[in-house]
Design a protein around this nucleic acid. Structure first.
Length: 324
DNA sequence: CGGATTTGACCCGCGC
DNA sequence: GCGCGGGTCAAATCCG
């Protein structure tokens, strides 16, 4: 708890791949690797679908209640059999960022859940009575009564090297909280999808070890399409260039890439598997540099060819939880 | 003026 | 049982 910082060291660049501090499977958070079609499937399952041709939104973005979503996630875990997804509730380990209590009991154990923290439109407004907020004293006595256990949904995370904390990902987010991270000078920000029916949340924090590294953790599943590039959008001078490049990337890569406005570079998908060599750097459009006239891409993989077929499913691995 | 952000307080789970 | 820390709420404030 207090030494989370040391244990979070792995968050910095290559150390991510070490499992010594973030034991794989200790939490149901996954770092994404980039360049595989299978990833897109998984992304889709999470509601992260950047396929412009998605003609069946309802199928791609089922608006699930947390429980249904959790079930869905467990299905996902089961169906992607070759994926090293490990949906587990580690009761022994937790971290400042990913405490075991955060885990979605997507596989079984709903016992540890609290009331659904995500307040979808279908959630009863009184949902939060029991947590947070500052109800009047007289009300507090009532609201302190525990509601339904909180449902934590499946989460996945990726690491981005970026100067900006909040990367555009095609969705609109509303910030609902910020917390100082122990042993870190950088606060953690909490965002919620602005879509009233969408319960997806995300956390953004900057690694204290490597301030250039932004850790984004998504929780839940979007039940809608991306907002058509909010606030002026990605489709602009930036994407006109990026889009061309994106066309050459697998959907997953597009995911990683497309939504980001100006990542300096994406050290993405961190693979925690010991064998992982996926400390891949996604091609980037160094927009900032572009302004200076030196935009360029970095090849996503040490070896240029982008995977187009099976074989890299292991790219998505459980992000070990960070010990606290 | 409406929506987004900030920020302090509160709740809850976990470890000791 | 207590303290710590993560997560969330919601009033206040900011901003377009």
């Amino acid at each position: 708890m207090d030494n989370n910082n040391e244990k979070r060291d792995p968050l910095t660049t290559t150390e991510f791949t070490t499992q010594s501090t973030w034991p794989p499977g200790s939490d149901s958070v996954y770092f994404f690797s980039t360049t595989h079609d299978r990833d897109s499937n998984i992304l889709s399952d999470f509601g992260w679908n950047f396929n412009p041709d998605a003609s069946k939104p309802d199928e791609v973005f089922p608006c699930l209640d947390p429980i249904a979503a959790a079930d869905d996630m467990s299905d996902l875990a089961g169906n992607t059999s070759s994926s090293p997804l490990v949906l587990e509730n580690s009761s022994s380990s937790s971290s400042p960022a990913f405490r075991s209590s955060d885990l979605a009991p997507v596989v079984g154990s709903a016992s540890t859940n609290q009331s659904a923290s995500t307040s979808s439109s279908e959630d009863p407004p009184e949902r939060s009575a029991g947590s947070g907020g500052k109800p009047p004293p007289e009300i507090q006595s009532k609201v302190k009564k525990k509601g339904p256990k909180r449902i934590r949904q499946q989460r996945f995370a990726f690491v981005t090297k970026s100067e900006v904390d909040h990367l555009e990902d095609g969705y609109r987010w509303r910030k609902y909280g910020q917390k100082a991270v122990k042993n870190s000078p950088f606060p953690r920000s909490y965002y919620r999808c602005t879509n009233t029916k969408c319960t997806v949340k995300k956390r953004v924090e900057r690694s204290s070890e490597d301030p250039t590294t932004v850790i984004t953790t998504y929780e839940g599943q979007h039940c809608h399409h991306t907002v058509a590039f909010p606030r002026g959008g990605v489709i602009g001078h930036e994407s006109s260039f990026a889009g061309h490049q994106l066309a050459q990337l697998s959907p997953a890569s597009q995911f990683m890439y497309y939504p980001t406005i100006r990542p300096r570079e994406i050290t993405s998908p961190i693979n925690l598997t010991p064998t992982a060599s996926h400390q891949a750097v996604v091609p980037r459009h160094d927009d900032d540099q572009a302004a200076g006239g030196s935009s360029h891409f970095i090849d996503p993989q040490p070896t240029p060819p982008l995977p187009t077929d099976e074989g890299l499913l292991g790219d998505i691995v459980p992000l070990g939880m960070r010990n606290r």
